[in-house]
């Protein structure tokens, strides 16, 4: 029961801060929407000239952009939050949670996932209105797929957060990873090696649900199994990397540094 109160307190704080700074949230949303508009207008212009972009329809672009946005928030949230907490001087207080910092960060991720859903939901609505293409939104199929897909990205996020604990300034890594995620979202998921990467397979499966109107049960079972394994392996590796870095930071007395 006590863990539940801790969990609720962390998620609640996350949501309060999300709600309390609407300008920050809205400006982020506006920026992403403007970037989408530019891509959309550019894609329409190029497609009118007979060139196929992303090898898919505009719906594919919407789903890909949505997943990219979600992935960006998922992998960077924890690292940014860690750096911000270190600057504020509250990181050490979070480390003094009786259930350990990993529990705190897992609760954090739930907060991040919930706010990510709201954020991406609004962005998706705007994108559908702009393109005039309505996509299927069966939440029962979409939410598990989203969760499994971003689990791998959260794994990357944990590894990055570990690096942030030790090295503090890792913003340049973020910039590189933004482009890596574009590639992962755009990759075809058919080759086996693409299925082993984070994000690619999940994005394809989500696209099939949203564009083709398939349900979770209609997707290939082997792909779903690979997606589960993919999510668990990346999350596990990310947590292991985080634990390793965290130990190094505690040994070197770096938790409070920023």
């Amino acid at each position: 029961m006590n863990r539940l109160w801790t969990f609720c307190a962390i998620v609640k704080r996350y949501l309060i801060e999300f709600k309390r700074y609407p300008f920050n949230t809205l400006s982020g949303l506006a920026t992403l929407y403007i970037v989408f508009l530019l891509i959309f207008l550019g894609a329409r212009y190029v497609q009118s000239a007979g060139v196929s972009l992303f090898g898919e329809s505009l719906e594919g672009l919407v789903v890909g952009y949505m997943m990219w946005t979600f992935a960006l928030a998922a992998f960077s949230d924890l690292s940014w939050a860690l750096m911000r907490e270190a600057q504020l001087g509250t990181l050490e207080q979070l480390y003094m949670c009786p259930y350990g910092f990993r529990f705190v960060s897992l609760a954090w991720i739930v907060g991040s996932f919930l706010t990510g859903l709201i954020f991406v939901g609004v962005l998706l609505g705007l994108m559908m209105l702009t393109t005039g293409h309505l996509l299927h939104l069966p939440l029962g199929s979409l939410l598990p797929l989203l969760l499994l897909t971003v689990a791998a990205v959260y794994g990357v996020g944990f590894a990055m957060a570990g690096l942030a604990l030790v090295f503090k300034r890792i913003q340049s890594f973020f910039q590189i990873l933004q482009f890596v995620f574009v590639a992962l979202v755009a990759l075809p998921a058919e080759p086996w090696w693409a299925k082993a990467l984070p994000l690619s397979l999940g994005t394809r499966l989500i696209a099939r649900v949203m564009i083709e109107g398939r349900s979770l049960g209609e997707l290939p079972g082997s792909d779903l199994l690979i997606l589960v394994a993919n999510g668990l392996v990346y999350l596990g590796l990310g947590l292991a990397a985080f634990t390793f870095c965290e130990r190094a930071a505690r040994r070197r007395g770096l938790l409070a540094h920023y």
Binding site: W5, T6, A9, I10, K12, C97, Y99, V104
Partner: peptide, 10 residues
């Protein structure tokens, strides 16, 4: 309230 919750207080 946050720090009480972090400690697991109801």
């Amino acid at each position: 309230a946050f720090f009480a919750g972090l400690q697991g207080l109801s």
